[in-house]
């Protein structure tokens, strides 16, 4: 039985872990690409080639090792991103750049196709079937007039899933391996101070929210309390009716006064006194010495192991 429970827990744990990992991989986004590269970013070999960028839109590190990249919908497994490379673990909200130079021998981040001829870029999970992201490449960016101009999501990870339309556009500057829109880390507090230099807006807004939250809680528990009292009264009325003592149901539950409690306590005390249910105490406290010095440390129960059992096969 115990074995079964452990097995079930292990399977559930594994499933959840795999599910979580798969869910994170699902948040990887093809983010930006550049086809004609004549004076833009160079790779480690000093070459200027087409490139595309993938963005980890999740808030956890995602390992894309074992996933696939392709420009051919009929061959989703065209380029397998090598597993076991620490660089394929993409930190949260970070980017990774792939060179589409058809030179897979140049390293993990050089794929075996070129964007100049590609119609689309397809990013697939390790099963080679589930597509994580897929964008269609715009033909106009194959033209020399669009040299060194990249096309991508105007804000990292945000935009339509087709690679065009909402959220996509020509970027003012190419931004390989970095944010497509520059985010100022200190923007929030600074913006807050600029629109609310004295703190009144914050005070009114936040206090309103605090009050709303607690007022809602108050209203809910007021109703729950009322329902509870009503139910208790009903129960006490039913019990009184069953015992033919309707007067017992007069005091609503939850509104028993302190005097009532005092009267009940006094009545009980007097009853016990009168009925001599409680005997007189001697008021003498004694301690009986015992010679048995029991301690779990010296107990054989904790010392002895269970006798080993040999399972004999018949």
């Amino acid at each position: 039985m115990m074995k079964n429970i452990k097995f079930i827990l292990a399977v559930v744990g594994l499933t959840l872990a795999l599910g979580a990992s798969a869910q994170s991989q699902g948040q990887m986004r093809l983010n930006e690409y550049l086809i004609i590269n004549t004076s833009d970013f160079q790779d480690d070999f000093g070459q200027q080639n087409s490139w595309f960028e993938i963005f980890n839109a999740s808030y956890g590190t995602v390992d894309i090792g074992g996933c696939y990249l392709s420009d051919d919908p009929n061959n989703l497994k065209k380029y397998a991103i090598p597993g076991g490379d620490v660089l394929t673990a993409i930190p949260p909200r970070q980017h990774v750049l792939f060179w589409a130079d058809n030179e897979p021998n140049h390293g993990t981040f050089h794929v075996n196709f070129d964007l100049k001829n590609a119609k689309e870029i397809i990013f697939t999970k390790g099963d080679g079937k589930s597509i994580i992201d897929r964008i269609v490449i715009k033909d106009i960016y194959r033209d020399s007039s669009k040299a060194n101009i990249s096309f991508g999501r105007l804000e990292d990870g945000i935009g339509s899933i087709t690679g065009d339309g909402e959220g996509w556009g020509e970027l003012a500057v190419t931004s390989p391996s970095t944010n497509n829109a520059i985010i100022d880390k200190a923007a929030k507090p600074e913006r807050m101070k600029s629109i609310d230099p004295y703190g009144w807006i914050m005070a009114v807004t936040a206090m309103s929210v605090v009050f709303v939250a607690l007022i809602l809680l108050y209203l809910i528990f007021k109703q729950i309390g009322k329902a509870n009292i009503k139910q208790a009264n009903k129960k006490s009325a039913n019990a009184a009716a069953r015992n033919n003592h309707p007067e017992a149901a007069v005091t609503p539950a939850g509104e028993v006064s302190a005097e009532t409690y005092a009267a009940i306590a006094t009545a009980l005390h007097l009853f016990i006194e009168d009925s001599e249910a409680h005997d007189e105490e001697s008021d003498v406290v004694t301690q009986r010495h015992t010679d048995r010095t029991y301690s779990p440390w010296s107990s054989k129960i904790y010392m002895l192991r269970q006798t080993p059992q040999v399972n004999k096969r018949n």
Binding site: Y198, G199, W200, A203, L214
Partner: peptide, 16 residues
């Protein structure tokens, strides 16, 4: 509960 909400004015007073 509402008293607990009102006392949070201390936070936003100090903020200002």
């Amino acid at each position: 509960l509402l008293i607990g909400a009102a006392a949070q004015f201390g936070i936003f007073g100090a903020y200002a």
